[in-house]
């Protein structure tokens, strides 16, 4: 085989060694990992079944309640209700609920992991220096590359789909948590220190509340990225709307792909409305003027 660049070291045996090492991990740890992630799998399946089992109007009511809780405004609630009904009319309700379950699980886990990582990054330049290149790699590495090891570890199914989605969707929440905390007015943090706030008190009474609008923007982006991942994740057995798109491609059925794609767009708008109205309320709380 000829190559433009001289072969200075044996890439093939390096690749083989890497594969062998990974196969070793799969053989030794695969089962343990599967057991560890069992509760997560149960939670996702439970959520999916629950959303599909409930009458559609109960689901709509739940979404409306969440929207009201997030923004305390009527208009977004009506918009969300209308979009959900439209989703039902498209005939993709059950697939959409499966997608919602996976996406919610991915988002919740991303926030639970990402916000603490972002906080750690904001507190130490060294941690930040180490994290930034990792985040860059996570965001630029083609997504299919993560699918291979996850599928090998867990076999096709919801767990590898969930993990690949988290890896893909978590960087914005980490980055924006770090950014938000770093942008908090240094004088207010200094005031907290001057009044004897411990580092923990500074974090929870000043930094996190004041960084909230930025953190929410990160969560919103993470949600959108998780949603955009569903089509790819369906290739490894995530099911849902992505699977319909995939089938559309395989069967060359334009309508199937188009309708499922529209469903994904509707879900994106719904979650964006909810997140934005929450973000706007947090922002307003920080800069109240007049009543």
């Amino acid at each position: 085989m000829t190559s433009g660049f001289p072969e200075l070291w044996d890439t093939r045996s390096f690749g083989r060694a890497l594969d062998a090492a990974f196969n070793g991990i799969v053989a030794n740890w695969g089962e343990t990992l599967e057991i560890i992630f069992m509760p997560v799998l149960r939670a996702i399946t439970g959520l999916e079944r629950g959303l599909q089992f409930l009458p559609w109007w109960v689901v709509v009511a739940l979404f409306c309640a969440a929207t009201w809780g997030a923004g305390r405004k009527v208009v977004p609630v009506i918009v969300v209700a209308a979009l959900l009904v439209l989703l039902g009319l498209l005939g993709v309700w059950n697939d959409a609920m499966a997608t919602v379950a996976l996406m919610l699980a991915a988002t919740v886990l991303s926030v639970l992991i990402g916000v603490p990582l972002g906080i750690a990054m904001s507190r130490s330049d060294r941690v930040r220096g180490g994290m930034l290149p990792v985040l860059d790699i996570m965001q630029t590495m083609p997504i299919f590359v993560y699918l291979i090891p996850f599928v090998m570890l867990f076999g096709p199914g919801k767990i590898p789909a969930l993990l690949a989605t988290i890896v893909f969707a978590i960087p914005p929440v980490i980055r924006l948590t770090d950014l938000g905390i770093r942008q908090v007015d240094a004088e207010i943090v200094e005031a907290a220190r001057a009044f004897g706030a411990s580092p923990r008190q500074q974090l929870w009474t000043v930094q996190v509340p004041l960084a909230m609008p930025t953190i929410m923007a990160g969560i919103n982006q993470t949600t959108m990225m998780a949603l955009s991942m569903v089509v790819i994740a369906s290739m490894i057995g995530a099911g849902g709307l992505g699977y319909q798109v995939l089938q559309g491609i395989q069967r060359l059925e334009v309508s199937r792909g188009l309708i499922a794609g529209l469903g994904i767009v509707l879900l994106a708008i719904i979650f964006d409305r909810i997140a934005q109205s929450y973000g706007r309320r947090v922002q307003a709380n920080l800069h109240r003027e007049g009543k």
Partner: peptide, 10 residues
């Protein structure tokens, strides 16, 4: 007491 007040806006 601070020049730019440094109150908690929230």
């Amino acid at each position: 007491v601070f020049q730019r007040f440094a109150l908690l806006p929230h």
